[in-house]
Design a binder for these strands. Structure first.
Length: 528
RNA sequence: GCCCCGGUGGUGUAGUCCGGUCAAGCAUGCUACCCUCUCGAGGUAGCGACCUGGGUUCAAAUCCCGGCCGGGGCACCA
């Protein structure tokens, strides 16, 4: 028993569920969970075109150049859902072909993040491990006369592309191009001297097809393969080859890419076609995903870091108390499409709350507390349930002395006038007799009264715990103006039972909201 | 500027392919009530939308054309 008590409440709950499932069998937790599952099942994705069970191969193609966000997670959930639906295979493939942008810890951010949301993948690779194959196909294009080496400076290329005019290099013979190509690989050229361009259509209306650059020299150390390579493929070329190597059948990608160039390369290389389903990005109100907007916040210490609970990163939403299951259900519910959307956070919160409600302990927390002396309050030994309807979550004992000194929310006292009768939850009724720094009230009875304010309280003794709660709000207001009040810190006191919680536990502070224990004495408000 | 892609209540989504059953469903939000020793959950009721103009048709959210608005692409980024 002592051992059990030494565990955190969250651990106790997990233990209970594992060891005595029958105790919880009839619980509302199970029922609520069942209901949620039914709902999730009701929102199935539409079938994939040209998909056969057992023959679908999908991929998650993150660029490890930043921390994983909830948007990546949602795109991952979609791919993962189809993998399951068709009993297919899923690749995790790091698109790490720009050594300048890629960083080692970002790989782990994605691996951990996908795992956290419950996505399982069947294969994993880095594109940087396929450089020889990429070179092979690049050479093929040059040999076919479909690509050529170009030494024009970048701005000239830009100019000619805008004008739809070819440059002198376009008509060079294959042998000359191959010679340059070999020279690039042999590190004979510096960055920017020579690039390989695809022969597209210099006059075409689709400007992305005007002889795009497909390989270039980058003299920077790569976090995985070091300085082994200096010639790096550009995305549109690399992705086509990789999808062939992975035998990808369906591409479900969030951001908008123009596929015409990729299709062109795929045809030239004689690779089989793939089904492409594009959908717009997952934006959350006031919370951009773009690094351009987020990075300054981190650097200027507007937020505490990439894991700040206001951030759209996986670490951020996790810290805030969003459950992976909520992200999965939410993604299934909102689906995907080409219409731009900005999700209101409350939509996600609603899903999260419904999962949390039946399993969260209730612990009293008094925000902005004020003292309240209760005259005539009788001595009470209370045994309080941690959950209003679910007894399986246990109880805690609270001993209230005679004429106790309590802490109650300042906002409630402010809103009342002397003489008002209110209920101290789980305790008794009192009448407010004096408002001020140390308010007073008198005991007026035990029996439940209809239509009176109900107020949570905490004993003002040595057992109470000072707790500050971070209240995250949107980082940006309309347009791109930073929100000066994106974080409030609420001071308050929690009852003694708070001490038994561990970092990571999520509980409900009644009349306040669901919070995740972020550190000893500190919580983050997930949502009301 | 050029090229793609979109525009259903405050927000998200269903319906649009194969026009009528959509005077538009669901979720969230808000309001009221019920329930509940929480401002949570649950229940009931209510509020609230087919971007716009024209065309085709007996009939258009759904098809066609124009406009407006939004997003993306036109990188030696992915």
């Amino acid at each position: 028993m002592r051992r059990v008590n030494s565990l955190s409440l969250g651990e106790q709950q997990a233990l209970l569920e594992a060891k005595y499932p029958e105790a919880l069998a009839a619980s509302n937790a199970k029922r609520a969970q069942q209901k949620a599952e039914d709902k999730a099942q009701a929102t199935q994705f539409p079938p994939l075109p040209h998909a056969t069970k057992g023959k679908v191969v999908l991929r998650l193609p993150p660029e490890p150049s930043g921390y994983m966000t909830i948007g990546h997670a949602m795109a991952g959930v979609i791919n993962s859902a189809y993998r399951d639906m068709y009993q297919g295979e899923l690749w995790l493939r790091f698109e790490d072909t720009n050594p300048r942008k890629v960083r080692k810890d970002y790989y782990d951010s994605f691996r951990d993040g996908y795992r956290w949301v419950g996505i399982r993948w069947d294969h994993e690779k880095n594109v940087s491990s396929d450089m020889e194959v990429l070179y092979f196909h690049a050479r093929r294009l040059v040999e076919m006369g479909e690509a050529y080496a170009c030494a024009c400076p970048a701005d000239l290329v830009k100019k000619l592309r805008a004008e739809g005019k070819p440059c002198e290099h376009r008509t060079h013979p294959v042998e000359a191009n191959l010679k340059v190509w070999e020279g690039m690989l042999a590190r004979r050229y510096k960055e920017g001297e020579w690039v390989i361009r695809l022969k597209g259509d210099m006059q075409g209306l689709d400007a992305s097809l005007r002889d795009p650059n497909i390989l270039r020299v980058i003299q920077a150390a790569h976090p995985v393969v070091g300085t082994k390579y200096v010639v790096w493929p550009v995305y549109d070329f690399e992705v086509v080859v990789e999808d062939k190597l992975c035998e990808v059948t369906h591409i479900l990608r969030s951001s908008e890419f123009h596929v015409s160039l990729q299709e062109r390369i795929r045809e030239l290389l004689r690779f089989p076609p793939v089904v492409v389903e594009q959908f717009s990005r997952f934006n959350f109100k006031g919370t951009p995903v773009s690094k351009r907007l987020l990075r300054p916040l981190v650097e200027e210490k507007v937020v505490s870091g990439w894991d700040d609970p206001r951030m759209p990163t996986i670490e951020g939403v996790k810290r805030r108390g969003i459950l992976p299951e909520a992200i999965r259900q939410f993604t299934l519910q909102v689906g995907y499409g080409k219409t731009e959307h900005t999700f209101d956070w409350t939509l996600l919160f609603a899903v999260n709350r419904k999962i949390l409600d039946p399993i969260s302990l209730r612990v009293y927390f008094v925000p902005d507390p004020v003292q309240l002396r209760v005259k005539g309050g009788p001595q009470k030994d209370l045994s309080l349930q941690f959950h209003p309807t679910f007894e399986g979550l246990g109880r805690r004992a609270v001993s209230v002395p005679e004429g106790p000194r309590l802490l109650v929310p300042g906002a409630d006292v402010d809103a009342m006038r002397p003489g008002e009768v209110f209920r101290l939850m789980d305790l008794y009724n009192v009448r407010l007799t004096k408002k001020g720094d140390s308010s007073q009230a008198e005991f007026v009875g035990d029996e439940r009264l209809p239509d009176v304010r109900k107020v949570q309280w905490v004993l003002d003794d040595s057992e109470k715990r000072d707790v500050s709660v971070l209240e995250p709000a949107e980082l940006f207001l309309e347009d791109e103006t930073p929100n000066p009040h994106s974080l409030r810190v609420r001071k308050g006191c929690a009852e003694a039972a708070f001490s038994n919680l561990a970092v990571g536990d999520i509980v409900q502070f009644p009349r306040y909201g669901f919070v995740r224990v972020d550190a000893p004495g500190r919580c983050v408000l997930a949502h009301p």
